[in-house]
Design a protein around this nucleic acid. Structure first.
Length: 272
DNA sequence: ATACCGACCTGTCAGC
DNA sequence: TGCTGACAGGTCGGTA
């Protein structure tokens, strides 16, 4: 479900509400599929830890933990990837447990943090405090590094944008929207884009992500943030999900093609 | 290196 | 009403 702006919105919401709280106990569902680390390790790392902060890394939600009685400064990380359909919700204990709830974290404040994920593509793991997911943060990357990412790559530019080892956090919606604003077709080989084109793309990616974060992300079907609030960036989509509808610039019908198994939307006239 | 495909899962919606 | 197929914000591993 969520890309960078949605994950950022969720992480900010969680940070506001549970920073400083302490994990009392952890319940994990019996099926271990969603776990990337052994269940025992996740439980041992989380229990009695203080949540010192919540932040986003690419599409991961990262909880900074101060561990155990000693609350060592070194700490550890609890990392949640929401996959396509994952949600993290803060609940009162008496609230009904939703179908497909795979983890419940009881907090000393009395609230619970619940991980719900119908499609089970989400992943839970723990990692040392120095963990790094690799790739550049799109909002922080500098122009020269951005340009270097694509130089000499024959892969379609959209595939490169979706490659989390290069840039982390850009997904299907924001790749399409960024390419539209930069006037570049999704199938265009990365290596054939001029420096000027890459500069435009560099600006477009940042602009799209910043606007989307400001609007709380895109709510398609069921996305809501940690407070249960919907985002509004879906109202700003210019090509994503608009197959056959007129381009907002030139009225040409928006095209949809499949690229690497993903729907890709573009204006055949505005994007070259 | 690259590109395409299916796999992983469940839910929803359009069409018949 | 019910069935079927397409499709969904993500990633991984196999194959040529």
């Amino acid at each position: 479900m969520p890309e960078l702006p949605e994950v950022e919105t969720i992480a900010q919401g969680l940070a506001k509400r549970i920073t400083g709280d302490v994990v009392q106990s952890v319940w994990l569902g019996e099926k271990p599929e969603p776990l990337k680390s052994p269940a025992g390790e996740i439980v041992a790392t989380l229990e009695h830890s203080r949540i010192a902060g919540v932040r986003r890394m690419g599409k991961h939600i990262v909880f900074d933990l101060e561990q155990g009685r000693v609350r060592s400064a070194r700490g550890a990380l609890w990392i949640v990837h929401l996959g396509m359909s994952g949600r993290l919700q803060i609940c009162e204990p008496q609230e009904d447990v939703a179908k497909h709830t795979h983890a419940i974290i009881k907090l000393e404040s009395g609230r619970e943090l619940r991980f719900v994920d119908p499609r089970r593509f989400g992943r839970l793991s723990v990692a040392p405090a120095n963990f790094d997911a690799g790739g550049f943060e799109p909002l922080d990357v500098e122009l020269k590094d951005f340009v270097a990412l694509f130089r000499g790559r024959k892969t379609p530019i959209k595939s490169a944008l979706l490659n989390q080892k290069l840039l982390r956090g850009v997904g299907n919606i924001y790749a399409d929207e960024s390419l539209f604003r930069a006037g570049i077709r999704p199938r265009r080989r990365a290596s054939t884009i001029t420096h000027e084109g890459l500069h435009k793309l560099f600006l477009s990616v940042k602009e799209v992500l910043r606007e989307a974060i400001a609007l709380g992300g895109s709510s398609i079907s069921d996305y809501v943030d940690a407070d249960g609030e919907e985002g509004f960036f879906q109202l700003q989509h210019r090509v994503y999900g608009r197959e056959g509808e007129p381009c907002l610039v030139c009225k040409t019908p928006v095209k949809r093609v499949v690229l690497g198994g993903r729907s890709s939307h573009y204006c055949p006239k505005c994007q070259k």
